[in-house]
């Protein structure tokens, strides 16, 4: 068996919304250069868990986190960690495509500019082109870079958002149900893109679509009521799950 390198390590992660505990001590290793999908019924904590990786939960008042989340060995909840810096290492793509209501070019250039990665000009042009090419959307938008990103189709918008995320050259890309608003063709394009991107990035995706988890991910984690029930290679989880609750969920028996 090949040795796996862990990009993210989660140890005994607990999360509270006010008084109610939403995650009950999760232990999980996200393997580097792979796609890991988080599945489970609504309200099981998978999105909450995903948002622990870029501390998006910080924005929610009364949200408290305990335990460790290590990004290549560094605790991202350590007091000296700058959330802004963290988010440039851990990018995020959201459920609804949410390009800024600005030009396609500006959508990509915004984050590199605020992080001071390159100056406007030729360097920025090149970065924008690379990001758009990497997200397989360059050919569709190269003639209309100054048009608003919101004028694209849903699937294109989502790929634009992915391009926007990889423009900062993160280590990890988090995707929160990225295809739930897209048609099957657009979905297939995103899945194909994920497959290409995992060479360079570690991808964690939350999905309600089990076929998508099966198709697009290498590892699958099943969450239920704030617990990690089962975690393993996708092929294993989908043919021979170890836990009856996983079995019931992925076969559509839920009672």
């Amino acid at each position: 068996m090949k040795t796996k390198k862990n990009k993210l390590t989660v140890r005994n992660l607990k999360l509270w919304y006010g008084e109610s505990e939403a995650l009950h001590g999760i232990d999980l290793d996200i393997v580097s250069g792979k796609v890991t999908s988080l599945i489970g019924p609504s309200g099981c904590g998978k999105s909450t868990f995903l948002r622990c990786f870029n501390r998006m939960n910080d924005r929610i008042p009364n949200c408290r986190v305990e335990g460790e989340v290590l990004l290549e060995g560094h605790d991202i909840y350590a007091p000296d960690v700058d959330v802004v810096q963290l988010r440039s290492h851990v990018g995020m793509v959201f459920q609804k495509p949410n390009p800024f209501p600005k030009s396609i070019y500006e959508n990509i250039a915004y984050a590199p500019r605020i992080h001071g990665m390159v100056d406007d000009g030729d360097d920025m042009d090149e970065l924008v082109e690379t990001a758009l090419k990497r997200a397989s959307i360059w050919d569709e938008v190269k003639d209309k870079l100054q048009q608003p990103g919101t004028a694209l189709s849903g699937g294109q918008q989502q790929r634009l958002c992915i391009a926007r995320t990889i423009a900062v050259q993160p280590d990890v890309i988090l995707m929160d149900e990225p295809c739930s608003a897209l048609d099957p063709i657009a979905t297939a394009k995103i899945e194909e893109l994920m497959d290409e991107l995992k060479e360079d990035y570690t991808i964690v995706i939350v999905t309600h679509n089990m076929q998508q988890a099966a198709r697009a991910s290498d590892y699958t984690a099943y969450f239920y009521l704030g617990d990690l029930i089962e975690y393993g290679e996708t092929q294993k989880v989908f043919t021979t799950p170890r836990d009856q609750r996983t079995e019931d969920y992925i076969t559509g028996r839920f009672g």
Partner: peptide, 9 residues
């Protein structure tokens, strides 16, 4: 139906 797990088996 795209069966999975025990159904698939």
């Amino acid at each position: 139906r795209q069966p999975a797990a025990s159904d698939l088996r």
